[in-house]
């Protein structure tokens, strides 16, 4: 197959291509027009673009073909859509760009956006966010639902988009760049607790898939595999991908939050008047 064959979408989705183009377009225009003082540095820009392009790649290149016909590749696809891609996007902290565009919105469009804001605040309640994050994984991996999702084109797209959007919401909540001390962002302790809590059910699910004797997801058997591979191997690899990398992502998330919490502590200590008056 030619290089173009690998880069072009297997199942072309105009809405998906448009959404990604709009996301990158709004980001770039915002970046160029905003005051230089607010502009994110090159590392953050690269992180953002990398996160967006990873998600795009697993949805609109040949990767998607293998995701549809191999269980373990499908798990890899969701690992990127629900974990790695959104984590990178949230870590790059595109908040200044969002603020820039929101600043341009008139009072009319702000009123229109208000219900979205309410929905957003509802979904970002820690308990709801954690439930959604784990619940969606379990929902789409519930065998009868998974079977339908792999058979129906509409459900398949709904599945992938819901994973991506929920991933963005969750990691945005966790990696919120605003300090909880001076804003209503979630406290660092709660963020760490959420990360630990969501890891446990994912590990149980992954381990259950790995140690299942029978075929849990026979849809790949029914619909043919991208290449002949023993079904047990496919399921084992898929289970491992559900089990270990998401748990590691939680660990990475916890380390990032711990680092921020320690920095915040250090900053607070520095801002307090010191008796000795010695600066580090």
């Amino acid at each position: 197959m030619s290089a173009a064959g690998y880069l072009l979408p297997y199942d072309f989705s105009p809405l998906t291509v448009f959404s990604f183009a709009a996301m990158l377009g709004l980001y770039s225009i915002g970046l160029l027009r905003m005051p230089a003082a607010d502009r994110p540095g090159p590392v953050r820009i690269v992180t953002f673009v990398l996160g967006v392009m990873l998600c795009y790649a697993v949805m609109q290149t040949r990767f998607d073909y293998y995701s549809q016909y191999m269980f373990f590749v499908h798990r890899g696809q969701h690992l990127i859509l629900h974990h790695l891609g959104p984590l990178l996007i949230a870590l790059s902290n595109p908040l200044p760009i969002v603020r820039y565009w929101y600043g341009l919105a008139g009072p009319g469009s702000r009123r229109l956006l208000a219900p979205l804001g309410w929905l957003y605040r509802l979904l970002q309640q820690p308990a709801i966010a954690a439930f959604l994050f784990v619940g969606l994984i379990f929902f789409w991996l519930w065998p009868p639902i998974h079977f339908d999702a792999m058979l129906s084109r509409q459900l398949y797209w709904l599945m992938n988009w819901s994973m991506l959007l929920d991933g963005l919401l969750f990691w945005w909540l966790i990696l919120d760049s605003r300090s909880p001390a001076v804003s209503n962002a979630l406290g660092y302790g709660k963020r760490i607790l959420l990360l630990a809590l969501v890891a446990i059910p994912q590990m149980i699910l992954g381990a259950w898939i790995v140690f299942s004797r029978g075929m849990v997801y026979d849809v790949y058997e029914v619909c043919g595999r991208a290449w002949p591979m023993p079904p047990e191997t496919d399921q084992l690899l898929g289970g491992l991908l559900t089990w270990i990398p998401p748990a590691m992502m939680s660990i990475v998330g916890i380390l990032i939050i711990l680092r921020r919490a320690m920095h915040a502590d250090g900053a607070r200590a520095q801002s307090q008047p010191l008796a000795e008056g010695s600066a580090p």
Binding site: A22, M23, V98, W101, L113, L123, D148, L155, L158
Partner: peptide, 22 residues
Amino acid sequence: MTPMNLPLARVAIVLLSLALTG
């Protein structure tokens, strides 16, 4: 529309569809 709000509109559609398909 800001980049954040485009996905948010979809969340609503997604949740609705989930409820329906369920």
